[in-house]
């Protein structure tokens, strides 16, 4: 099976701080891969490296065997990598629909001059983009919020819309940064169901970061555990729960 994402000895330093310290792992295509670890372990830094927002200090990151060190985030997005953010990064002054249409940005190809003239091509492509957006809205069950402005929507719905915006890109790899953060049990279950649906129905490779251990243990197929920028463990979720170094990282070491 192909590797969707591969880290080879990746380190990321901010001055003296080692955000990532010699991290290596592979995400198989079609897996639901989870990164867990305490706060400040470097989970989001992994995402920012895959995404091109940070450049690793050393090491290689490959997406479908293509080295991405020199690529800007928008080029990496065009390789089929989409993401959500830990703190919601929606376009607040726009409607849900516009946010999701921006997600479909790379499926539309006409230039700025054509867009001002609004030719037949523009109309057709806008209709296609709207179809993509409507599929996503249908999938995530947010029909009633279609024309609502983001600012007026509750947190749980905003999280779901951000997921929708990422989905509208029709990604091959989807990075989810704490999709269940700040949610109650019911909302967490909703999100978990959506993640499983995306994984199974749409066949998207998912990399998931979350603090909700119950959810991660239930849905992930592979897991790595990080602490202070180092990889402690990689394997199946059930083995992670038994691993001594993982227990120590989460609960501390007894003297």
């Amino acid at each position: 099976m192909k590797n969707a994402v591969e880290f080879v000895n990746v380190s990321l330093n901010f001055g003296g701080v080692k955000a990532l310290d010699d991290i290596s792992f592979e995400v198989k295509e079609g897996s639901l891969f989870s990164i867990i670890g305490p706060n400040g372990a470097g989970k989001t830094s992994v995402f920012n490296c895959v995404n091109g927002i940070y450049r690793p200090t050393s090491g290689e990151i490959k997406i479908y065997d293509q080295e991405i060190a020199d690529l800007k985030p928008d080029k990496i997005a065009n390789l089929g990598v989409s993401r959500t953010f830990q703190n919601i990064e929606l376009f607040e002054n726009m409607t849900t629909l516009d946010n999701i249409l921006i997600g479909a940005h790379k499926h539309i190809n006409y230039g700025p001059v054509t867009s001002m003239l609004r030719t037949k091509k523009v109309k057709n492509q806008e209709d296609e983009a709207r179809d993509i957006a409507e599929d996503v809205i249908d999938f995530l069950e947010i029909e009633e919020h279609r024309f609502s402005y983001i600012l007026s929507l509750p947190y749980g719905i905003q999280k779901r819309i951000e997921l929708g915006r990422a989905l509208a890109m029709k990604p091959k790899v989807l990075l989810l940064d704490e999709p269940a953060a700040g949610m109650n049990n019911e909302e967490t279950e909703d999100i978990a169901r959506f993640i499983l649906d995306i994984h199974e129905e749409l066949g998207v490779t998912i990399i998931l970061v979350d603090h909700d251990m119950n959810m991660v243990m239930d849905i992930a197929t592979d897991v790595i555990v990080m602490d202070f920028g180092k990889k402690l463990f990689s394997g199946s979720p059930s083995d992670a729960a038994k691993d001594q170094s993982v227990i120590e990282a989460y609960l501390g070491v007894s003297d």
Binding site: N51, I53, K72, P73, D74, A77, N78, S82, R83, F85, E89, L90, F91, E92, N93, M94, I102, G103, H105, K106, R165, M169
Partner: peptide
């Protein structure tokens, strides 16, 4: 609104 998110969307 958010240039980092915009770039991440291609």
């Amino acid at each position: 609104d958010r240039d980092i998110a915009a770039e991440a969307l291609g």
